[in-house]
Design a protein around this nucleic acid. Structure first.
Length: 320
RNA sequence: GGGUCGGUAGCUCAGUCGGUAGAGCACGGGACUGAAAAUCCCGGUGUCGGCAGUUCGAUUCUGCCCUGACCCA
């Protein structure tokens, strides 16, 4: 549970950016903590949240408010339209640029978010494999409709048996990705993964995890969803649809917006929408905890432990 | 006071012509490397309301009691 510090050949800490990372399940209070910590030291915040990158999806993604964003500069919020492309690789590319800039300015850097893959990709690097190939994926989709559901997986078994052993037949997304990598490189994504294991460290960091017991967390989630609704979640959903975005766009198929859209279209009562958003958010929080639990680098705290957290962070920040 | 129908998993219920039980939802655990708020996998012991009786054996039949809904007085 120590900050990851790389030593130079002479034994001195290498001069490179230091990140204070704040992770944890949704609704646990990461945003508030980060703003408070960053405000104290004039730092800036980088969001590691796969949904807050989308414009117009504000209430439903629990973005920091404009007022909060005025108190502390935020990065990687509102960077693409809801029909735009965004993924872990784009996150890493953009975040590296931002970190370099903040490092030059000697600003303290806080990375805050609940998207585990993005955080691991940031601290450990992404696989050295080719990116998503739109044409290839279109072809796979077409072949699936033509030859049936099991076709792609059968093909994976033939082309990359190692991957087929690890990937479940129903997991279409991973099946496609594995085929895509094999087709473009002739290498199994499993082999590439085994060789990599998020060990491509470019930064020093301390990882703070925020959590509370399950009942309290669910209480927070329920309360927050009620507040989103009171703050105009449905109106926000209507505005997004009026702009011409719909279920075709990935973020509108996620957790909250999926049920919001269904309700606006008249397929779901208001009560059912609220119920399902709460349920899916609880499930999401559970998946997040599953992801973070196995990360031995995380130092866990309760949301109220701000002073302890602050001290813990201060003890790790390198001199500059 | 009398009658009818209920009381089975956290919830809604199914079921056992007597051999101690199962669905949906909820919930829990896990996987995860360019779609990650996505995608996927696994998980059902619960005094079958209580007590007693009949029986080799009762959640299932009988009696009484508790309890809920409704109907009649």
């Amino acid at each position: 549970m120590t900050a990851h510090i790389t030593l130079s050949p002479r034994g001195d800490p290498l001069r490179r950016p230091f990140l204070t990372i704040i992770a944890g399940p949704t609704a646990v209070g990461k945003t508030g903590l980060a703003i408070s910590l960053a405000e104290r030291c004039g730092g800036e915040i980088i969001s590691a949240d796969s949904m807050q990158v989308y414009r117009y999806l504000d209430i439903g993604t629990a973005k920091p408010t404009p007022e909060e964003q005025r108190r502390v500069p935020h990065h990687l919020i509102d960077v693409v339209d809801p029909d735009g492309e965004f993924n872990a690789a784009m996150f890493v590319n953009r975040v590296d640029t931002i970190i370099q800039a903040l490092y030059q300015e000697r600003k303290r850097i806080f990375v805050v978010g609940g998207t585990g893959l993005y955080l691991d990709a940031l601290t450990g690097g992404l696989l050295r494999a080719p990116g998503a190939d739109g044409e290839l994926r279109d072809r796979y989709r077409e072949e699936t409709t033509r030859y049936g559901k099991g076709y792609l997986y059968e093909r994976l078994k033939r082309v990359d048996p190692a991957a087929a052993r690890v990937i479940h037949p129903n997991d279409r997304i991973r099946t496609i990705r594995a085929l895509e990598v094999m087709e473009q490189t002739g290498q199994s994504i499993i082999e590439i993964r085994e060789a990599h294991r998020f060990e491509d460290h470019a930064y020093d960091y301390i990882k703070i995890g925020l959590t509370v017991d399950r009942d309290a967390l669910y209480e927070r989630i329920n309360t927050r969803v009620d507040r989103m609704v009171a703050d105009g979640l449905v109106a926000e959903g209507r505005r997004v649809l009026e702009r011409g975005y719909d279920e075709e766009n990935l973020p509108l198929r996620a957790m909250t917006y999926r049920h919001l859209v269904s309700h606006i279209r008249g397929n779901l009562t208001h009560d059912d929408m609220v119920r399902l958003i709460k349920r899916d958010t609880r499930h999401y929080a559970r998946r997040q905890l599953t992801w973070f639990r196995r990360d031995g680098d995380i130092k866990w705290f309760a949301p109220g432990d701000e002073n302890m957290i602050s001290r813990s962070v201060e003890s790790r920040v390198p001199e500059r």
